[in-house]
Design a protein around this nucleic acid. Structure first.
Lengths: 192, 192
DNA sequence: GTCTATAATTCGATAGAC
DNA sequence: GTCTATCGAATTATAGAC
C-alpha cells in the first residue's frame, strides 16, 4: 500500500470513528445504525463493515477510552476531592470534548458488553488511583472507588444525559463546591 | 360487557403491564419487543396493541410511577439525609420490588420521552418535598433537588443497572452510612 | 376479545464488480 | 479501497375472520 493510500485509509477510519462516537453518544447502541454513521462520515456503509467488522466491533472501538486520571498521591490530602471533581469536569467539558463516556453511559443500560466495559474501566483505572491516594482501610479502595463512581456517574447522568435543568445550570465552581467535599469524604473518611 | 369479561380484561392488562415493566427494565425501550412482552404475559402480540395502542403507549404506562416520598417537614432536621436514603432503598428494594425507576433509567439515555418523563418526576415530586423540608435559600430547592438526584440516581445506576460489584456489595446500613450525610448536606447546607 | 395473516419498513451483513 | 445490489431476518402495526 502506498503512503497516500494509507493516509487516506487512516483519515477514513478516523472519520468513521468520530461519527460513530457522536451517534452512539446521542442514540445508544440499538438506535445507532451503521447506515447513519456512514452517512455522517460521508462514506459507504459497507466501508464501516470493512474497517470494523461488525456493529459490535465499531462500538468497542468507539467506547474504548482512558479516564487519564492524575496521580492522586501527589495531591495534598485535603484537596483530593476537589482535584477529582475538577479533573472529571475538564475531561468531560474541555476542548475538544470527548464523547466516549457518554457513549458508554447511553449504551450501558441496555448492552451487556457496554456495562462490562464500564465496570472494567472503573476497576482498572479508578480503583488503583484511589488506592494510591493513600492507605485507609477500611473500607477498601474498591469500595471507595465504587462510592466515587455513584456520585460522578450520577452527575454525568443528570448533567449530560437527562439534562436536568438545575444540574445543567450549575457552573463549574458550583459543581466543585458541592461535590468536592463528597468525593473527599468517600476517599478519606476512615470508618466504614 | 359482563363483569366476568371485565375482570378478565383487567387481569390481562395487568399481566401485560407487569411483563412490560420487567422487559423494559432489563432491556430498555429499543430492545424490548411487543412480541416478547406478549410471550411473557402468555397472550397474543396483537392484544398488546389493543390495550395500549402502540409500543410508546405501553412504555408510557409502564414508566408511570410515584416516588411516594414522605413529608420531610415532619422529619427531625438532622435526620433528613438518612430518611431520604432509607426511603429510596425501601422503594427500590422492598417487597414487592417496583421496577418503574429501572424502566426509566434503562431507557432515558436513548429515549427523549423517557428522559422528559424522568425530568418531570423529579421536578414535580422531589423538588416540592425538598422545598417543604424547610426554607434554606440559597441555593433554591430546585438546585438542592438536582444535587440529590445526582447522588441517588448515580447510586441506582451503579447498583441496579451497571451492577458495579463494590456498590452492589454494600448492605443497606452501609449505603445509609455513606450517602446519608451527603444528602443531608445537599438538603441543608446554607451556602451555595 | 382473541387470533391469523400479512403489509410495510428497516437493518446487519455479504457477494462481487470495478 | 470503494461501490452497487441484495439477502435474510426482525420489527411495528394493521386488517379482518371467528
Amino acid at each position: 500500500m502506498t503512503n497516500g493510500k494509507r493516509e487516506r485509509s487512516q483519515r477514513t477510519r478516523a472519520a468513521i470513528l468520530q461519527a460513530a462516537r457522536e451517534r452512539f453518544a446521542a442514540d445508544g447502541f440499538e438506535r445507532t445504525t451503521i447506515r447513519a454513521v456512514a452517512a455522517d462520515a460521508e462514506i459507504d456503509p459497507s466501508m464501516v463493515m470493512r474497517y470494523f467488522g461488525s456493529k459490535r466491533g465499531l462500538f468497542a472501538a468507539a467506547a474504548d477510552f482512558d479516564l487519564a486520571l492524575p496521580d492522586l498521591s501527589r495531591v495534598p490530602s485535603d484537596e483530593l476531592g476537589a482535584a477529582v471533581v475538577d479533573h472529571f469536569l475538564t475531561r468531560w467539558e474541555g476542548e475538544p470534548t470527548d464523547d466516549s463516556l457518554r457513549v458508554l453511559l447511553a449504551s450501558a443500560a441496555t448492552n451487556a458488553a457496554a456495562a462490562a466495559q464500564m465496570q472494567e474501566i472503573f476497576r482498572a483505572q479508578l480503583a488503583p488511583v484511589v488506592a494510591a491516594a493513600g492507605p485507609h482501610d477500611p473500607p477498601t479502595a474498591a469500595t471507595r472507588a465504587g462510592l466515587v463512581a455513584t456520585q460522578m456517574l450520577g452527575l454525568a447522568l443528570c448533567r449530560y444525559v437527562l439534562r436536568l435543568s438545575p444540574v445543567v445550570d450549575l457552573d463549574r465552581d458550583a459543581v466543585v463546591h458541592w461535590l468536592g467535599p463528597v468525593i473527599q469524604r468517600y476517599l478519606t473518611e476512615p470508618s466504614g
